[in-house]
């Protein structure tokens, strides 16, 4: 498929990535290259083949319902860009 600058803008928005104009141009080309490469996937005959989201059979790993103390407050906020009154502060939502 053909990737247009509009597609790149949409993908960047959905991925929450602000791009410069130069980046948009560069990604239009390189994403096109990547997708052309991925067209290789179509060559594989996968009729009657099951999808494998993981490689080893893994089932039913559980833990018991026991509460434990959480992280100490200073560790919770140790890396926080902005803290206010014991919460993570963010700019306006809307």
């Amino acid at each position: 498929m053909k990737i247009t600058p509009k597609d790149v803008e949409r993908l960047a928005f959905v991925s929450r990535l602000e791009l410069t104009d130069e980046e948009k141009t560069a990604y239009t080309r390189s994403l096109q290259e990547s997708l052309s490469y991925l067209d290789l996937l179509k060559q594989a005959d996968t009729t009657a083949v099951e999808a494998a989201e993981r490689v080893l059979p893994m089932i039913n790993l559980f833990r018991e319902d026991k509460a434990q103390p959480g992280l100490a407050s200073e560790l919770v906020f140790a890396n926080a860009p902005e803290e206010e009154d014991g919460a993570f502060k963010v700019p306006r939502i809307l």
Partner: peptide, 30 residues
């Protein structure tokens, strides 16, 4: 990293999911 993220977003988007993502999982089986 940004290129990988955008490509991954494309691969998982509902319009292309089967062609890329599901197909890749099947190739994984092969």
């Amino acid at each position: 990293v940004k290129r990988s993220i955008m490509l991954g977003t494309h691969v998982l988007s509902s319009a292309h999911y089967d062609d890329y993502y599901t197909q890749a999982l099947k190739v994984r089986t092969l």
